[in-house]
């Protein structure tokens, strides 16, 4: 079994007003060396297979077809081999 952790973010070419607002808040706290704040989504799930290629394939397919909208979002993911479900 594999555990997929997916990060979806707005494409860098797209202005992220939420990130800008949060960056402003961080700066108000005095941490002025923090910059380029981007807000994204975190999604995780288990893939019930022993083959890493299969886990990669279905995670990629889920990202492409549903979890991210390619018009505005990019995604990255990591896979970790696990013995039992992480959140079951």
């Amino acid at each position: 079994m594999f555990h997929s952790k997916i990060t979806v973010t707005l494409r860098t070419s797209i202005l992220d007003p939420q990130g800008k607002a949060v960056e402003h808040g961080i700066h108000s706290l005095g941490m002025t060396n923090i910059e380029h704040v981007r807000i994204g989504k975190f999604i995780e799930f288990d893939v019930n297979t022993e083959a890493k290629e299969e886990a990669e394939r279905v995670t990629m397919e889920a990202c492409r077809k549903l979890l991210a909208n390619p018009v505005m979002e990019d995604f990255t993911f990591t896979l970790e081999k696990i013995q039992k479900p992480v959140h079951a």
Binding site: L10, I14, L15, P17, Q18, A21, N69, V71, M72
Partner: peptide, 17 residues
């Protein structure tokens, strides 16, 4: 309709949030 691919582009969060 944009999500279904019947219209191009997408609708982002309002710039004002």
């Amino acid at each position: 309709l944009t999500e279904a691919g019947l219209l191009p582009g997408t609708l982002l969060r309002n710039a004002s949030l």
